[in-house]
Each structure stands twice: as structure tokens, then as C-alpha cells.
Design a protein around this nucleic acid. Structure first.
Lengths: 201, 201, 201, 201
DNA sequence: TATGAATGAGATTTCATTCAT
DNA sequence: AATGAATGAAATCTCATTCAT
């Protein structure tokens, strides 16, 4: 990469990082483009070289962060439990993600409304990642490798993702109605129930 | 109520109604206080007699609408199925709310991810409604009347509310991964599964 | 005084006192009529029954406070030094006023630009006090009683009042260039110098 | 200076000049930022690039004008009376400033009670002028050159500045108790008296 | 006399976006 | 590619004043 190219990337990265910090600290509405460029140490005009507006940047960030979150969990699973079955793999990844979010509430607050089926799919299709890293590809692969087969696996997974995202948020952020550690066994039980319910005898 | 008091309430109601229309039509960010007061036919200063700012008004509206949504479903159930058991009652209310939201996507978009445990509880505790109309009071009463008993009923209900709110939103608004009518049987099955799981033998 | 009359005076006094507190705490510009009536515990419309606007109230307050300040000093002098000569009386009153302002910096800040010849004269002519209590009457009386006679006594007094008001403010409020206790001997010396300068041989 | 820099300075100057005109014509309270930017021919936002608010601008203007006033008098003295002694120099500068203010009552009204020790010192220390042009430096230099020496020269000068500022304002603006031309001999006599009083034998 | 809800002009301030350098 | 001064529409919010009760 040429010096110019490196410099470009540095500026862009700086904008990304700064924006993430500000969005999580002050929220999207109260973060101005001036705030971002000031903290990032670039000129105002530079922002518009890379992003259309604040919302464009936010969307790219959500995709990036959701993707990182999932990939980290997935990679750890591959290393840690290379041979586990679908159910164990799913629970492993779920717990990994929930732990990561518990440790990083700013990230949780940022992803908030986006810890959902729609965004997980979008996260991968938006990022210019090779197709083999698409979320649908992942779960299809996992399902294919699985001994156990499921009816309507997409709807099943949809329910699980929404349940975990939604309950996890309330529990981690507000301990309402209960803290996450107490909640986890209930969640795993419900997830297991959903899986069993969809199993093909 | 004196003439002055009546007039006060009319102005406040007008602001509430206008704001709800605008929030659902144009979104919170693009609705200005000027828009609201113009459409409501009151002076700008009047807004500030009743609300701190746009966000204050929004929060009051969410509580109001969530409360109305639940009350309407509950009252219909009382009329329609006065003697149904807990499971049937819960499914009845769930379906009623989902149908209402499907018929009123603007309301759904407005309540968005506030279709959650936290807001349902808040909706009732905030509104200066008699204590007997508190959400917790409702489900406690329903549980007490129920033949069947449940372990950790609050956590059970929490999971159900979050599952339905979260899946319902995605399905109704985006038909992703599937439209709501196709999704419903899956949801009822999962809800039933969660209930069975918590039943005390 | 009838009950109605008493009530009227109470409201007016309450407005006076509250306004003085607010003017000295937050300044004239930042004190609103709403602030005043809220703190005074009267309705907004009531303000306009007694005062034209904020500035009207302020002017009445200045006259009142300046008058009180001088009258207190004068009366103490009459009691304390009934037979002192003009020079001693003037210094006595000066010190008394400076001490009072040092003890009450809020009052000093409020009177600030008005610790001057013009306001002292105005203070008495505005207040509906008997003519014999007019400032000019006071100093004329004191001069007449004095053994020593002065050329251009009004210009002499004018210089003294302005010197003391202006230097006193800077010294008491900011200790700039020196604190008031250190400054006092210098001021008395200058005042004495001015008096001597105007003495008729 | 680059084109951009020149343009910046022009905008700022335009704001300064326009604001001074408006402040003196209509007073600070009745001058709005809209008035200023309209008359100055710049956009509203531009104001906020250079000043925090109206009061920030006013303070900068006071320092600027007080500084100009003194510098003009001082420079004329250097040209006109290069060899005069301290007493004559002081009276020369005093008269020069009083004449300037008499000729420019708008400026006098604007500087008002800021014609004081504090502001004169601040005027120079705030402006990013070379240190040799500091007010303290001026009078220290003049005192050093003087044949005659004085006790506590700072307190002496403080009294003189406050006396002249305060009496000058009342006399020029209101001719109260007497017009400035009649007052001048009295003031010079008092000033001379103060100087003599502080002379070291 | 006293009230205080309502007014609405207008003041302050923000901030996304542009464009000459 | 990068800058940052300038813009000005538009948003928020204030507050003196009125007037029906």
C-alpha cells in the first residue's frame, strides 16, 4: 500500500474509531460531525470524502461491529470445540456473544436495537467480505455438518436470535427482571426447547 | 372541571395527538416542535408549559400507547373469554396485540423495540392509573386464578414478551424472515413450549 | 390599615425582597419576572399591578437601598457623635457606609454603578420621604452647623462621593489594587486633602 | 497574510466595528446578535466562530477601546511634550482622555464605569500586545523617568484614575453637578493635591 | 385585586454541507 | 486528497405581556 493509501486508511480508521466512541458515549443524535472530526483530528471536509453522512457511518459501524462480534465467537468455537454438535455450537456462540456484550456495555448500547436477525444477516452481506463468510453460509454449513436435522431452521434460528438479543439487552443493561448470570440457565433451557421442538425425529 | 381546566386538557391532548401523528409519519428526529405546535394549533410557548422537550413528550406517549394497547387486549379477553385458563388468556392477549400492531404499523414503528418487558412495566407504573391496573397486578391476578402453577413466572413472562415483541417487529415490518401469519404458529408453539417448561408438575 | 391594604403591602414587599435577592444573586439581566413572582409566591399578573417592568422595580430598589444605607450611617452618627464637626462627621459616615458594603457585597454589587453623586441625590428625591430628609438638605444642614466654611461645597462633596464609591468598589470586590483596610488610610487622607483644599481661610 | 487569513480578519473586524456602533447606539441589551451580523454583512454562524456570545464581544471591545484611548493620549504626549515631568504628563494624558470622551459621548457611555483602574490594567494585559505596552509598564517607566519620587505610587494612581473616571462620567454625561469645563480646574487641583501628598520630600 | 394559562415574536444557538484554497 | 472558514436555514427555547376568569 502506497504512503497515500496508508494515510487514507489511517484517516478513515480514525473516523471509525472516534465515531464509535462518541456514538456509544453520547448517542447518535447528540454526536455531531464536528465532534467526530475534532476528536479524530481531521478536517471537516475530509469526513465527506469517506461517508455520506452520520447515518451512513453508523450503518457501516454496526455491520462492522456485529460481524466482529460473531466472527470472534465463531473462531473461538472452531478452536475450542472443533467437533461439537449444532446445539452445543449454538449455545457456545450465544454465550460467547453474551459475555462479550456484558463486558462491553457501550457496544451493547450501540448495537441495542440491532441485536436482531435483520442486522446479523445485513452485517455480513454489507461488509465487502468474501461470500463464504456470509452469516447464512455459516449457519447453513453448521446445519449441514450437524447430525441432527431441523424443520424450518431459519425460523427456528430467527426466534433464538431475537430472544437472546432482546432478553440479553434488558438483563445486562438493567438487570430487569434479573441479572444475566441468573437468566442464562433459563435462556439455554428455552433455546434447547426451541431446538428440540424443531428437530426432525 | 372548570372552563380553564377543560381548555388546558384540550391543548395538552391536541399536542399529544398531533405529536403521535407526526412521530409516526416523519419520525422523531424529523419532527420539530414547530411542526407539532403548528399542527396542534397552539402557540410555541404552550408546548413548554406541558413538556420539557420532544423526548419528554415521546416518553409519555410511549407509556400511554403501550398501556392502551395492553388494556384493549385485556378488556376484550375479559369480555370474550371470561373463563379461559392462563395459557389461553396469554395467547389471546398476544394475538390481539400482534393483530393490532399489524393493523397499525405506524404504531408498531413508534413503539419499536419498546415492545419490551421494561416498557410494559413502566407504562403502567408511570401513568397515574389506579394501582389495580398495574401490569404486575394483572399478571399476578391471572396467575393466581390459574389452575396450573409456574416456576419463576416473571422470568417466564419476560422471555415471552421479549420473544413476541422482537420477532413480531421484524416479521410485521419487514416480513423477515417470514410474514407474520406464517410466523404465528411457530410463535405460539414456542410460547407454549416455554409455558410447559415452567409448569409445576 | 385595612386587611386588603395590609395584604397589598405584603405582596409588594414580597416582590421587593425577592427581587433584591435575585438581582444580587443572578444579576438584572438574568432575573426574569417569572423568577421573581415564583419566589415571591404571587401570580404573574400581580407584578404588573405594582410595577411597570423589571427596570421600574430596579430603580425603586436602588433608591430604597441607597437611602437606607445613608440613613443608617447618619442616624448612627447623630447618636454616636452628636457634636462632631463637619470633617469628622463626613469621615464617620463614609467609614460607616464602606463597612456596611464590605459586610454586604451583594448590596455593593447591586448598587455598583450607582454609588455616585447622581444616585445619592436621586435616592432621596425619589423616595416619598419628607423633604427635610433630602440628601441636599442633610449636607446643607451639616455645612451650616459647621464652624469651618467651604468654597464650592457641592463640587467638593461630589468629588469625595465619587472617589469613595469608585475606589471602594474596586477594593472591596476585587482587592485591586489593595484590600479595603489597607486602602482606608489613603482614602481618608485624600478626603481630608480635598476638604482642606476647599476650606475658606 | 494569505487571502484566507485576510478575509478572516476582515470578518472579525467588521463584527467588532458593527457591534461597537450598535452597542453605543442602542445599548447592549437591545442589540441582538442578529442585528450585529446583519449590519456586518456576515452569516449568523460566523459570529460564533469568533465570539462566545454578546458579552464576550463586549468585553473584548472594552479592552480594545480603553487601550486605544490611552495609547492615543500617550502617543500625543510623547510627540507634544517629550520632556515634561510626571505631573504634567499625567495631567496632559488625563485632559486628553477627558476631551476625547467629551467629544465622543457614545464611547463614554459604552465604557461607562469601566473607566477604572481594573479595566485599564486589563485592557493591556488582555490584548496580545507586546509587553512593553502594558499599562503598568507605562506608568512604571514614567515614574522612573520622573525627578520627583512618590510613596505608594500604585495606590496614588488608582485614586486618580477612579476619581477622574467617575467624576468625568457624571459631569460629561449629565452635567451633574456641573459641566466638565467648569469641573476641570477642580479635578486638576485635587489630582495635584493627591500627587503632592504622596511626594517623597 | 388577583390569577396564571396562553401567547408568539424573537433571541440564541447549532450544525450539516459547501467550496475556494 | 485535504482543509476549515463560511454559510444560513432551521431548531430550540425564552419571557414580557395580556386577558378571561
Amino acid at each position: 500500500m502506497s504512503k497515500v493509501q496508508t494515510n487514507k486508511q489511517q484517516k478513515k480508521d480514525s473516523l471509525f474509531n472516534t465515531a464509535f466512541t462518541l456514538f456509544t458515549e453520547k448517542g447518535l443524535n447528540k454526536t455531531t460531525i464536528s465532534d467526530i472530526v475534532n476528536d479524530a483530528g481531521v478536517a471537516k471536509g475530509t469526513f465527506y470524502l469517506y461517508f455520506k453522512d452520520k447515518y451512513d457511518l453508523r450503518n457501516l459501524l454496526i455491520a462492522k461491529k456485529a460481524s466482529e462480534l460473531f466472527m470472534s465467537a465463531y473462531n473461538d468455537m472452531i478452536l475450542d470445540r472443533p467437533k461439537c454438535d449444532f446445539e452445543d455450537g449454538l449455545l457456545y456462540i450465544s454465550e460467547h456473544i453474551i459475555n462479550a456484550l456484558e463486558a462491553n456495555k457501550a457496544l451493547l448500547a450501540f448495537l441495542h436495537k440491532d441485536l436482531s436477525w435483520g442486522v446479523f444477516k445485513k452485517a455480513f452481506s454489507d461488509t465487502p467480505i468474501a461470500d463464504e463468510e456470509n452469516f447464512a453460509v455459516f449457519y447453513t454449513k453448521m446445519l449441514n455438518l450437524s447430525q441432527v436435522k431441523y424443520n424450518d431452521p431459519e425460523i427456528m434460528l430467527f426466534q433464538i436470535v431475537e430472544l437472546l438479543g432482546s432478553c440479553g439487552y434488558s438483563s445486562i443493561m438493567y438487570k430487569d427482571p434479573i441479572d444475566i448470570d441468573t437468566l442464562k440457565p433459563f435462556l439455554w433451557r428455552t433455546v434447547t426447547g426451541i431446538l428440540r421442538d424443531h428437530q426432525i425425529a
